[in-house]
Amino acid sequence: MNFDGVWTPVVTPFTQEGSIDFAALPPVIDSLIGHGIHGLIVGGTTGEYYALSNGERKKLFDAVSELAGGRIPLMAGINATTTEESLDLGRYAKSAGFNCILLAAPYYCQPTQDELLAHACTVDDALDMPTMLYNFPARTGTAMSFEFIDALKQRPNFQAIKESTGSIERMHTLTQDYAGQLQVSCGMDDQVLEFFTWGARSWVAGASNFLAPEHVALYRTCVVEQDMIAGRKLASRLLPMLNLLEQGGKFCQYIKYGCELAGLPVGPTRRPLLPLGEDEKAAFARTYEQLIAHRG
């Protein structure tokens, strides 16, 4: 499978009472598809999968699959604390029409590399789906070592990796030494220009929920047109926002507030994540308005 392009980890809309607001999903999905996003991810960190029950995650798979209607590739995030739950979610997503899966290390339990390998192979044997690995040890507690990646070389379903460590050195190794095995997808938004410069052709971007035109334009300029000078100008306009998101400590809250400013209200985050304060909203809004002032 080709993982080129901008993949949006879709936000999960909530009502003020905390239930999933399925009525808020259609405008989000239609906006992303209309702006040329290349793929949708349901069950990513931006979608607050960790705050959802197994049943809620399945309902989201069904809802987005129906709304997408075959117009765009769909990736299912199936991360969980146990292998069995990941398998259950993966089987359901496959039956719902998803094209591929996003697989991170089971969080909190901190498996060893051998245990992580056994987990990944079990999922692969059971689901037989194109897979993007998700290396985000700051969230999961477990890194995906190069030895782990080497051990998957003979398994063709493992086709890409979303790299979210922030290590430029590791990104260099993946793009230069593992290019024949895995597509590398940018998982650190404030490093996207570096990823594209070193050959990455994929970007999993939370802020594309509300800044899809800017994300697609940067991808097209850097990857399709290979114009890194023009790309640097575009990236420099995006960078204040990407820095705020990656370094502000309230990623999901900012993404959802960005959707609100873009005319796509998706409600609050689930507790324990609390709403933004008025000063935080004002600072974010200034950054957002300065960015979109360049549109057109």
Rank of each mutant, 00 (worst) to 15 (best):
W203L: 03
L193D: 13
S167W: 01
G199R: 03
Q247E: 11
S208W: 04
R237K: 14
Q226V: 00
I229D: 13
A205K: 04
D189Y: 00
H215R: 09
G180F: 09
H172F: 12
V224H: 04
L238P: 07
E214T: 04
P240L: 07
A212I: 09
S202D: 12
G231F: 05
A212H: 10
R201W: 05
K233V: 13
L193P: 03
L244P: 01
R232V: 04
D177K: 15
D190M: 09
L238G: 08
Q191N: 11
N209I: 07
C222A: 11
A200C: 13
E246S: 12
Q247L: 14
A230C: 11
R220S: 11
F196C: 03
A230N: 12
M171Q: 08
D189C: 03
M188N: 03
H172V: 11
E194V: 09
D177L: 15
Q181S: 13
A212N: 10
W203A: 04
T173C: 06
S167I: 02
S208T: 12
H215L: 10
E246I: 06
V223Y: 00
A230E: 07
L182C: 05
E163S: 05
H215T: 11
L239T: 13
C222Q: 01
L174C: 07
A212V: 03
S185H: 06
G180D: 14
F196A: 03
W198L: 12
Q181D: 13
S202V: 10
K233G: 02
I229H: 09
A200K: 01
R237L: 13
L193Y: 12
V223Q: 00
G199Q: 06
F195Y: 15
A217P: 03
Q181N: 12
G231R: 00
P213S: 14
V224C: 04
G166V: 00
G206F: 02
V216T: 09
R232C: 10
E246G: 13
G248M: 10
T165P: 05
I168Y: 05
S164E: 08
S236H: 14
L193V: 05
S164H: 02
G248C: 11
Q181P: 02
F196W: 01
G166E: 01
L245D: 08
G199T: 10
K233W: 02
R170V: 12
E169T: 15
R232F: 06
L234S: 06
S164W: 00
S202E: 10
C186K: 00
A230Q: 10
D227R: 04
V204P: 09
L174Q: 06
F210Y: 15
F196H: 01
N209R: 07
S164M: 09
M241E: 04
A205G: 09
A235E: 14
C186H: 01
A179F: 08
L245R: 04
F210P: 02
A207P: 11
C222E: 01
N209S: 06
P240Q: 05
Q176P: 07
Q226C: 03
Q226A: 13
R232Y: 08
A179K: 13
L245I: 15
W203F: 12
S202K: 03
H172R: 11
R220W: 02
A217L: 09
G231M: 02
L174H: 08
Q247K: 13
A179W: 04
R201G: 15
Y178A: 05
S167E: 01
D189Q: 05
V223N: 00
M228N: 04
G187V: 02
L242I: 10
L218S: 08
M228H: 15
L238M: 15
T197I: 09
P240N: 08
E169P: 12
P240T: 05
A230T: 07
